[in-house]
Nucleic acid binder design. Structure first.
Lengths: 337, 337
DNA sequence: CCTCTTCCCGAAAGCGCTTTCGGTAATTTG
DNA sequence: CAAATTACCGAAAGCGCTTTCGGGAAGAGG
């Protein structure tokens, strides 16, 4: 492959000139530039990224951190959608993504330390627990950072309009005639969970609907199993809801399962509406009506906010709230008389 | 953060000694090592990875390439399972994963070029089209590489036992009394598709079952829509199958949809068995019986084969075939009399 | 007491690249 | 034609680290 030294030797110019030719400096003549480029092509020359980074202090790499909670890792469909679109957007600008191990040759370090070690140009953190000490540390650092699906005053953030989403859901159920609307919620330590709860309460209040005892149930961390358990608790109530707004699609799947196992029918007996619009819910029975989060736009926005900071070379704190919309499918029906 | 120069100044030792202390060379006394480590901790010293890589020619990074076909990218659930377990396994050894953009500051280069530029220690390629020129180039290179879900004589590979999987599926249907067994296949240009076809043909032959006209239908690249279309073609046959072995779970979802839309019932009218065991098929109706690919083990095996080559510093060509198993759920039933 | 090891430490070169700064040759200007 | 630009090129320092090699001091052996 060779280095610029080889190129210099081969062309007879100095390494300075070679480097300049390669980097489009204007103080090399077209003729020598052409010669050098030609030679570079002939010997399959490729610049060494490490040497470049060392010298320029720019690594063209973005560190990715995501929640390992629930053992989902990279398997979480919502996370994946976001990271995929984030990847596309940053890749266009020439950045690589690096998924950091926290294990530096057997000395394990924090994510921040690792990212500093790797000298990434920026960091994106996705789907995380705001209480996570690691995340806090990242947010306190001076590396450009964007946080997805979580709010913070100290760094750029992007998340869906969860309040509005919850309102959409509740209003939709209301228009179908439902008055006894329950909410199976995500844990309040997760921003998205808390916001949807807030939106639910707000919407109910606006509609002058009381939140009956037991109608707001914390189902934890968005898994199918937790959703199912939560629904079972609702089904034990004397005063059962006719509709339930579930804070996540995966939980909603569990919810439907519980309802079915109880011998009831969705949506004829109970309507359920989810949140996220992950792909698979189109294929379950009944197809799930849900609030769609636009993962493409979230990813793009995150990329935009991060790139902005990286070029500005200063910490910005912009907040981007991505609109959501209702996707009507088959899991909600007018209330039975 | 500081460099080793700062550490040297602070402790009064030379940078040589500092470096040695940090890297556990034995020709520094315990006392000075302690001092240096202490000072390092005090000033939050972290070694610069680029400088290290430049000097040692080891980057502790593994390049990841995956298929962009079908626009799935990182969203493909099967891919994700594998990469997640691969990540875990390599992370334990201190490696980071880098998802390469092919856009080096607006000059777009091949994956191989990019990986060379980044000086990765190894490459993993997943779920790819064997015809892809980029993949071919990677396989021809001299960088340690492991290929998943594809066969090749020139590099280490790991894939599921697709022949056996197909056989398991066909035999299972046979035992349920089915004799008219069709196969909705993946494209033959995909190794997994081809192997499952072969397994299907083999199994049918072993059971002395004829493959009736139109019973082997190419459904392309494993999407829900393609599966659905393929099933529609089967349903147009005068001599309809009583069971169908589908080469992928996503396609199977489309298959079931087509059958239902045709007014038939799964499994009472037609039995369906899938392939992969992606998470969501537990939640569709009926729950899909399938051949389970062990993504965890595939990822681990891939990591193992790659790490092996990286430490051996030579190209190896081991082949690892991961066993599969039948997961019985509710989409298959005894044949109607 | 002298020599031979052993134990520690540091000078220096090298990894591959960028960038400042100065210098020469060619060109323009008055 | 002299002076002032302009165009082009290169020496050298620097980025932060590793590793070879040699040398001084201390301890061991005779």
């Amino acid at each position: 492959m060779g280095t610029i030294y080889d190129l210099a030797k081969k062309t007879g110019f100095s390494i300075t000139t070679v480097s300049k030719a390669l980097n489009n400096y204007k103080d090399v003549s077209d003729k020598t530039r052409a010669k050098i480029l030609q030679a570079a092509a002939e010997m399959d020359y490729l610049p060494n990224a490490h040497a470049q980074s060392l010298s320029t202090k720019k690594s063209w790499a973005i560190g990715v951190m995501f929640s390992e909670a629930n053992e989902v890792g990279m398997k979480h469909p919502f996370f994946n959608g976001i990271i995929e679109s984030f990847r596309h957007a940053t890749e266009e600008q020439g950045y690589d993504l690096i998924f950091a191990s926290r294990n530096l040759r057997n000395r394990d370090m924090s994510y921040l330390e690792h990212f500093k070690h790797r000298a990434v140009d920026g960091i994106v953190v996705i789907c995380s627990d705001r209480m996570d000490e690691q995340v806090q540390e990242l947010m306190r650092s001076d590396i450009p950072i964007v946080v997805v699906d979580m709010d913070s005053a100290n760094c750029s953030v992007v998340y869906s309009d969860n309040i509005e989403g919850a309102r959409l859901a509740v209003n939709y159920l209301y228009e179908l005639g439902h008055r006894k609307i329950a909410h199976i919620a995500g844990d309040e330590t997760i921003d998205a969970g808390a916001a949807r709860i807030k939106g639910y309460e707000l919407a109910m209040q606006e509609l002058d609907l009381p939140i009956r005892p037991g109608y707001l149930v914390n189902a934890g961390f968005f898994s199918v199993g937790e959703g199912k358990q939560a629904m079972e608790r609702l089904l034990e109530l004397d005063d059962q809801p006719t509709a339930v707004f579930v804070a996540g699609d995966q939980m909603a799947i569990g919810v439907i399962e519980a309802i079915h196992e109880h011998g009831l029918h969705v949506p004829n007996d109970i309507s359920v509406i989810g949140y996220d619009d992950i792909e698979m819910i189109q294929y379950i029975t009944p197809k799930l009506t849900t609030i769609r989060q636009d993962t493409d736009e979230i990813g793009e926005a995150a990329a935009e906010l991060l790139l902005e900071q990286m070029t500005a070379k200063e910490r910005l704190t912009e907040r981007r709230v991505i609109p959501v919309r209702l996707v009507e499918r088959a899991s909600c029906a007018p209330v039975k008389q």
